[in-house]
Design a protein around this nucleic acid. Structure first.
Lengths: 336, 336
DNA sequence: TTGTAAGCGTTATCAA
DNA sequence: TTGATAACGCTTACAA
């Protein structure tokens, strides 16, 4: 059972392939009955134009590469859904690669996707990435490149981000408004730029509220649960004990919750916790976690939109979209 | 900056395209110095063969379609990673579609993927799917089709599954071994075959241990948290109260945990809970959940392997792979 | 050992 | 209104 081709339609109808092609495309100058006959047969034989041939002609693969640290992070799973929802509307498919936070894997994926001739690339950087030459190569090939969430400031590309400084500030202000004075930070790796921005927001919030910052209250750690857990132990040992923790990700916040419970401290009575991301787990942990929702689905949609903008207007200037965030208040912060 | 083509290499070297092609492919009958010259120039100009042209020639897209209910389910996120790890080795990319448990979306995705000429399809059925004509169409086009996890027994395709009856039996035996006698089931939708198989396993376990089954202890519900929660309320109201719950998914188990706590009952002292899937949340909920690990990454790898087997041997018989599961013991079941 | 020519399936251009 | 031809980039008989 082979797929029927346009040529075969032509042969059966005793007309030329070009006529068939025109009939199928509503060409203005085609005899109505020719058109009718073609459409009828095409229907009957379930003719599907071969996209492989189309791709060769147009030099477009109709594929969009997406590189994220990990699809199992709920943030990225949602973002991917958002990207896909837009892509599908334009007849595009997305090809997803995971960097697993590894620079080497990110480079390898970027190269593989370029080789496979994706029409564009939507990327959220790996935690290790400090060199951007692989993306410069993409740009030189005029392949539209859009960053989202974790972006590269040094490159002039379209990007979809949130205002991490502002969001960090908002998050910490929730804690301050709840009466917290000694707010510690589970800060994530120092290499992650968005984490640093959120911490910058933390400082701004303190400043605005005349709380003097204490650098010893900032605990850098990697994103793993173990690391968050261990650093919370250190954090709780600090004298005087912090009365709140701002974690730059929900995963870290949840590790903190675990550690806090082991210390037989109560959340939020003894210590408040603020997360970031609005992962589904935030409603499963006890108490439920206050956090910041970045609306990843919408970020993904916007990123895809910016890709199509670039595709359709290669010489337009790149666009930077800053998306709004939402504070989500739950039970991990004392209400005063 | 256009990509350089094989023809251009040929022109620059004043030889024919075919010679260049042969040089690049280690053709046996090629003069060493011709080959050398070609490779050198190819290197210099960073020649990358255009896969779009290759695809048209070979009539292969080098894309593998994957349809799952939802990528944000951790089970599927892992399975996808497993599929991808195999695919990448063979120069394949995967195109992921989410059915969102909708029959219509599954049909639409199947058709879209066929239209885009994927070389094969790896599918886990949507919860609604009862008609399989869209897959029959795929099989008629000789597109390799592999099911995993949620399969279709009526179709003769390759498949990767676990023995859900056996796994359900094992799960319930853990409860029985812990001394539970009145084991209720959060059973999921009646339309989901694998859930029903797990429930069948439940019955076998009861039977084997001379516990008489009580149909009133089986609570069908959809997979949502609300539904699991509400049904647990009903379940707990049942007299005499069950001393254990076997949930066919961790999500349901977690909803049950919530409901149980609202009743001020203790897990596992008052009631034990057994889940299924080994989702990451099982270690976040308190107490940590005993469950069944299906090793989704390995399932995904195996599914991809079966796809490549079909691709390379179109007339080979389909293969059914039954993967082992692991019982994961945590704190939600009383140890006696 | 290399070159020529045809072909994968489609469409754009030109000519009729 | 339709047809012939060439082209997208690559490979492979076949010929030389």
């Amino acid at each position: 059972m082979k797929q029927v081709t346009l040529k075969e339609l032509a042969k059966k109808l005793n007309i030329s392939p070009s006529t068939v092609s025109r009939a199928l495309h509503d060409h203005p100058k085609i005899a109505p009955k020719t058109k009718e006959a073609v459409l009828k047969l095409a229907q009957e034989l379930d003719f599907q134009p071969n996209p492989l041939a189309l791709n060769l002609r147009t030099q477009r693969s109709k594929n969009l590469g997406v590189i994220v640290p990990k699809i199992s992070y709920p943030f990225y799973a949602s973002a991917i859904s958002g990207i896909e929802s837009m892509a599908i509307q334009q007849g595009y498919h997305i090809i997803i690669c995971q960097s697993e936070e590894s620079y080497e894997r990110e480079v390898a994926s970027t190269k593989a996707l370029a080789k496979s001739r994706v029409d564009g690339l939507i990327v959220s950087l790996s935690g290790q990435t400090k060199n951007y030459d692989h993306f410069r190569a993409i740009m030189q090939k005029n392949i539209p490149l859009v960053f989202f969430n974790r972006e590269c400031e040094a490159l002039e590309t379209s990007k979809v981000i949130i205002d991490n400084v502002q969001a960090g500030k908002q998050a910490v202000e929730v804690l301050i408004d709840a009466g917290c004075k000694r707010i510690a930070v589970l800060a994530g790796p120092q290499s992650i730029h968005i984490s640093n921005q959120r911490i910058h927001g933390y400082r701004l919030a303190l400043e605005k509220n005349q709380i003097s910052p204490d650098p010893a209250l900032i605990f850098h750690c990697d994103f793993s649960e173990v690391s968050g857990y261990q650093n919370t132990f250190k954090l709780l040992a600090h004298k005087p004990r912090p009365d709140a923790i701002f974690a730059v990700s929900d995963r870290l916040a949840i590790a903190a919750v675990k550690a806090i419970k082991e210390h037989n401290l109560k959340i939020p009575q003894d210590i408040s916790v603020m997360g970031f991301n609005n992962d589904p787990v935030t409603t499963i942990v006890e108490p439920q976690l206050s956090t910041i929702d970045q609306q990843p689905y919408e970020m993904g949609q916007k990123a895809a939109k910016l890709f199509f903008d670039q595709l359709n207007c290669p010489h337009c200037l790149p666009e930077k979209a800053v998306m709004p965030v939402k504070v989500v208040s739950r039970d991990s912060i004392q209400i005063i």
